[in-house]
Amino acid sequence: KHLIERYYHQLTEGCGNEACTNEFCASCPTFLRMDNNAAAIKALELYKINAKLCDPH
């Protein structure tokens, strides 16, 4: 559950690194913003595939 919350935060708030290159992070310049419901679904999907989590900045 904690990991899913981290994915959700990364998708909605980002890691804080303006030069982030993680396509699944709101801080990445090319990230496409999504609403909270879509972010919750995506967080579950990312958890299932063990996607990369950013280190908070």
Rank of each mutant, 00 (worst) to 15 (best):
H2V: 10
H2S: 14
H2T: 08
H2W: 02
H2K: 12
H2R: 11
H2N: 15
L3W: 10
L3H: 14
I4Q: 15
E5G: 10
R6Q: 14
Y7A: 02
Y7K: 01
Y7C: 02
Y7V: 02
Q10T: 06
Q10R: 08
Q10C: 03
T12S: 10
T12E: 03
T12N: 05
T12C: 09
T12M: 14
E13I: 10
E13Q: 15
E13D: 14
E13Y: 12
C15V: 01
C15I: 00
C15K: 00
G16D: 10
G16L: 07
G16V: 04
G16Q: 09
N17A: 13
N17E: 11
E18W: 05
A19H: 12
A19M: 13
C20F: 00
C20D: 00
C20N: 00
T21F: 12
T21Q: 10
T21P: 08
T21A: 14
T21I: 11
N22R: 02
N22C: 02
N22F: 02
N22P: 00
E23H: 08
E23K: 09
E23S: 13
F24Y: 11
C25N: 01
C25I: 02
C25A: 00
A26K: 14
A26R: 07
S27Q: 05
S27L: 02
C28V: 05
P29R: 09
P29S: 08
P29N: 03
P29F: 04
T30H: 06
F31T: 11
F31S: 15
R33T: 11
R33N: 07
R33L: 06
M34C: 11
M34W: 05
M34Q: 08
M34Y: 11
M34N: 03
M34G: 06
D35Y: 03
D35P: 06
D35M: 09
D35Q: 08
D35K: 04
D35W: 03
N36S: 14
N36R: 14
N37V: 04
N37H: 08
N37K: 07
N37M: 05
A38G: 04
A38I: 05
A38D: 03
A39V: 08
A39K: 05
A40Q: 12
A40E: 15
I41Y: 06
I41P: 08
I41K: 15
K42W: 03
K42V: 02
K42L: 04
A43R: 01
A43N: 01
A43F: 00
L44S: 14
E45R: 09
L46Q: 05
L46N: 03
Y47V: 15
Y47G: 13
Y47M: 12
K48L: 02
K48V: 02
K48I: 02
N50K: 07
N50P: 10
A51E: 07
A51V: 08
A51F: 09
L53R: 10
L53N: 02
D55F: 09
D55H: 04
P56S: 08
H57N: 15
